[in-house]
Design a protein around this nucleic acid. Structure first.
Length: 609
RNA sequence: GGCCCCGUAGCUCAGAGGAUAGAGCAACCGCCUCCUAAGCGGUAGGUCAUAGGUUCGACUCCUAUCGGGGCCGCCA
C-alpha cells in the first residue's frame, strides 16, 4: 500500500456536508455504511467526469451498485457502473471503467482500482479504511448499522393473529418469531413499527369455543361433559370451565344457550387471549395492539369499508361463473355482492356479502385493513400461515383499491414447521386437540434457541425443527456456533480485564490489522449496515441469522490463526500496546453479534455450558 | 379443476440482474506444551429440473412443461 497515504484523510473521509449527519459525534465522523459511501464516491466521480467532459453530462447513476465481489481475489468492492452506463453514454464499458478508475485513484480510501472482465471496476481499499470500520463499530456500539432508510415510515406488522380458541402451537411460533424479528429489523432501519394482533373473535369459531367451555363448566359442576363432534376437546379448557364456575356459580347450569352464549363467549375469548399473551411473552414477543374483529361489527365499520369500495365503482351485485372444470353437483347461480378484485390482479371477483345478506369472511378483513390504512400506516405487512395462500391476491387488491395504491401490502406466508427428535419425525397424536404447543417448544429448548432456529430458513421454505439437533453443540448447529463465537470473545475480554488491560483504550489506539484473516473479519463487519438494509427492504429477517453465522465463521477462523501465528492472538501478556491493537477487532465482532441477535430477539451467550 | 410455495453438490440449505454458483453435514487428508479443538485449514463433489424468451449480462425476471409440497374445490 502507498507509504504516503494520508491516514488522517482516509479516516475522515466523509465530506463536510455528509459529516453533518453525524453531528454530536465529537467530530469523529466515521462512515456508517462503507458500501454506501463508496457508492457515493463512484456516483460523484461520474458526475465530475460529466462536468469536465470525460463522460456525457447528466448520466443517471441510479442503477450503479457497489457490492462485495463473490471472489475476494477481485478486491474488496466491485462496481457495475461502467456496464450500466455504457448504453446511455454510448461508450464501451471498459473505456468508462478506465476513466472512473483514474478518477477514483485520487480518493485516499481507494488503494487500487482495476478494470476487469466485461467492465467491472474492482476496488481495493486502503488498510486504514478497515481499521476505521472497526473503530466505527466500537464508537457506535449497538447503533452500528442502524439506518434512517425507513425515514420514519409507519409500518404495521400484523402477525400471529391465531383464533382465540386455544394455546399457540408450533406453526404460530414460527409466525411469531418471524413477525417480531421483522418488526425489530424495520425499526432498526428507521421505520416506526407497530406490532399488531388481529383477534378473530367475530366468527362462528368463538361460538364453538363458548359451547366447548360450557361443557367444561358443566363438568366443573360434576356433570359429564358432552364434547360433541366439532367442539374443541382440548384439556386446556378444563380450567376455563372451572374459572367460569368460580365466577358465575350455577347461574348457567341447565339453561338454554341463548341465556349464556354471549357471556360465556366473552369470558372464554378473554381467557384464551390471556393464554396467548402468556405464550407470546414466553417467547419474548410483545404486541403493541390487539385488534378485535368484533369491534368491526355493529359499528358500521364494515359497511363503511364496502361503501368506500362502492364509491370507486368496485362493488356490484352479480353471480359468479361456475368453477372451471367439473361443475360440482350442487352448484347453482346465486346473486351476491361482489368486489371487483380482478381489476387489481385477482383471478376472479370475490363475494363480500352472501346471497342471504350476511357478510363473508372477506368483508371484515377488508374493513380491518381499511382501518389500518385510515390509521395512517404507510406500509402494511401481514404474516400468515401458508394455508392462507388463497387469500393473498384478494387482500392486496382490496388494500390497493382502498388506499388508491398508496399503501403497499406485503403478505409473508410462513411454511410448515416439521418437528423431529433425533431425525425421527415427531408424531403428534391424531386425537384432536393434542398438538405440540409453543410452550412445549420453549420449555424444551428455550426461547433463544427457538427464535434463532425459526429464522434459519426463509419464511417461504419449510423448516425442519429437530429437538435434539437444535441443542447440539457443534458447527452444524448455527445457534450454538454463533453463541460460541460471542462467548469466546466474552471469555477473552474477561481475561483481559482480569489481567488489568484497559479495554477502553483499545478503541482509541485503533486496531492493528495485518493478517488476511483480520481483514476478512473487518470486511464482514463492514457489510453489516448493508446487510441490514437489504434484509429490511425485502422483509427477510433470516438474512440476519445467516450473516451472523458467516461473521462467526470468520471469527473462529481468525481465532485459530492464532495457533500458527501467536502475534495474531488477542491477548498479549504484559504488553498493553499489543493487546490494545488486537483486542479491538473481537470487541467489534461481539458488538455486531449482539446487535444482530438483538434484532432476532436472542440473548447473546457470555459463556458456554 | 384452480391458486400458492419449492426444485441449486450424495444430504440440509445460502445466494439485490453481474465475473470461475457458495456454506454446513457426510467422505478423505491435516492442525491442540498456545486466549474454550464445543474449533480451524485443505481435498473431492454441479447440466442451478427442462425448453423457450427479455438484455451487454439470467440461479435470479417472463412464459410453458415436468417433478415435490400446501391450500381450495365455492357464498374463499
Amino acid at each position: 500500500m502507498p507509504g504516503g497515504l494520508d491516514t488522517h484523510a482516509a479516516i475522515r473521509w466523509r465530506t463536510a456536508a455528509k459529516a453533518g449527519e453525524n453531528q454530536g459525534n465529537q467530530g469523529k465522523a466515521e462512515p456508517m455504511n462503507l458500501f454506501a459511501d463508496i457508492r457515493d464516491a463512484v456516483a460523484d466521480s461520474i458526475e465530475a467526469l460529466g462536468r469536465d467532459g470525460g463522460l456525457p453530462a447528466g448520466l443517471d447513476p441510479g442503477n450503479v451498485t457497489v457490492e462485495p465481489p463473490r471472489d475476494s481475489a477481485h478486491g474488496d468492492m466491485a462496481t457495475n457502473a461502467a456496464m450500466v452506463l455504457a448504453r446511455p453514454a454510448g461508450m464501451k464499458p471498459r473505456d468508462i471503467a478506465e476513466k472512473l478508475a483514474q478518477r477514483l485513484a485520487g480518493d485516499a480510501r481507494i488503494a487500487s482500482a482495476e478494470v476487469a472482465g466485461p467492465g467491472f471496476l474492482n476496488l481495493r481499499l486502503a488498510p486504514e479504511v478497515w481499521a476505521g470500520v472497526v473503530r466505527t463499530v466500537l464508537e457506535r456500539g449497538a447503533d452500528y448499522g442502524r439506518s434512517d432508510m425507513g425515514r420514519g415510515q409507519r409500518v404495521n406488522v400484523e402477525f400471529v393473529s391465531a383464533n382465540p380458541t386455544g394455546p399457540l402451537h408450533v406453526g404460530h411460533t414460527r409466525g411469531a418469531v418471524f413477525g417480531d424479528a421483522l418488526a425489530s429489523l424495520m425499526r432498526f432501519t428507521g421505520h416506526e413499527v407497530t406490532r399488531e394482533y388481529y383477534i378473530n373473535d367475530g366468527g362462528a369459531q368463538v361460538d364453538v369455543l363458548a359451547r366447548s367451555v360450557y361443557e367444561r363448566y358443566r363438568e366443573a359442576h360434576g356433570r359429564v361433559p358432552e364434547i360433541a363432534e366439532g367442539l374443541y376437546p382440548g384439556d386446556y379448557l378444563v380450567a376455563v370451565g372451572q374459572a367460569l364456575k368460580d365466577k358465575v356459580g350455577d347461574a348457567f347450569l341447565d339453561r338454554d344457550e341463548e341465556v349464556w352464549l354471549d357471556e360465556v363467549r366473552a369470558f372464554a375469548t378473554e381467557a384464551m387471549m390471556e393464554t396467548i399473551r402468556a405464550d407470546l411473552a414466553s417467547l419474548g414477543v410483545r404486541m403493541d395492539v390487539f385488534f378485535s374483529e368484533k369491534s368491526l361489527y355493529g359499528t358500521g365499520a364494515i359497511e363503511a369499508a364496502i361503501e368506500a369500495l362502492r364509491e370507486k365503482g368496485l362493488i356490484y351485485e352479480g353471480g359468479l361463473e361456475p368453477p372451471r372444470g367439473k361443475t360440482p353437483e350442487d352448484w347453482e347461480p346465486r346473486e351476491q355482492t361482489l368486489f371487483k378484485s380482478t381489476e387489481f390482479g385477482d383471478d376472479v371477483d370475490r363475494p363480500v356479502k352472501k346471497s342471504d345478506g350476511s357478510w363473508t369472511y372477506f368483508a371484515p378483513d377488508i374493513a380491518y385493513h381499511y382501518n389500518k390504512i385510515e390509521r395512517g400506516f404507510d406500509v402494511l405487512v401481514d404474516v400468515l400461515g401458508a394455508d392462507h395462500g388463497g387469500y393473498v391476491k384478494r387482500m392486496k387488491a382490496a388494500v390497493a383499491a382502498l388506499s388508491n395504491g398508496r399503501v403497499p401490502l406485503d403478505i409473508k406466508l410462513t411454511q410448515l414447521v416439521k418437528l423431529y427428535r433425533d431425525g425421527v419425525p415427531f408424531k403428534m397424536s391424531k386425537r384432536a386437540g393434542n398438538f405440540v404447543t409453543l410452550r412445549d417448544v420453549v420449555e424444551r429448548v428455550g426461547a433463544d434457541v427457538t427464535r434463532f432456529v425459526m429464522l434459519t430458513r426463509k419464511n417461504d421454505a419449510p423448516l425442519d425443527f429437530d429437538f435434539a439437533r437444535v441443542l447440539e453443540q457443534s458447527r452444524d448447529n448455527p445457534v450454538f456456533y454463533v453463541q460460541y463465537a460471542h462467548a469466546r470473545i466474552c471469555s477473552v475480554l474477561r481475561k483481559a480485564e482480569a489481567a488489568g488491560f484497559d479495554l477502553t483504550a483499545a478503541a482509541d489506539s485503533g486496531p492493528g490489522l495485518e493478517d488476511e484473516a483480520e481483514f476478512a473479519l473487518a470486511r464482514k463487519l463492514a457489510e453489516w449496515p448493508r446487510l441490514v438494509e437489504i434484509a429490511a427492504r425485502s422483509h427477510e429477517p433470516h438474512r440476519v441469522a445467516f450473516y451472523l453465522y458467516d461473521l462467526a465463521s470468520a471469527f473462529h477462523s481468525l481465532w485459530n490463526r492464532g495457533n500458527e501465528k501467536p502475534e495474531l492472538r488477542f491477548l498479549h501478556e504484559g504488553d498493553a500496546a499489543a493487546t490494545a491493537a488486537k483486542i479491538a477487532l473481537p470487541q467489534a465482532v461481539a458488538v455486531v453479534i449482539s446487535a444482530g441477535l438483538a434484532i432476532l430477539g436472542v440473548t447473546p451467550a457470555t459463556e458456554m455450558r
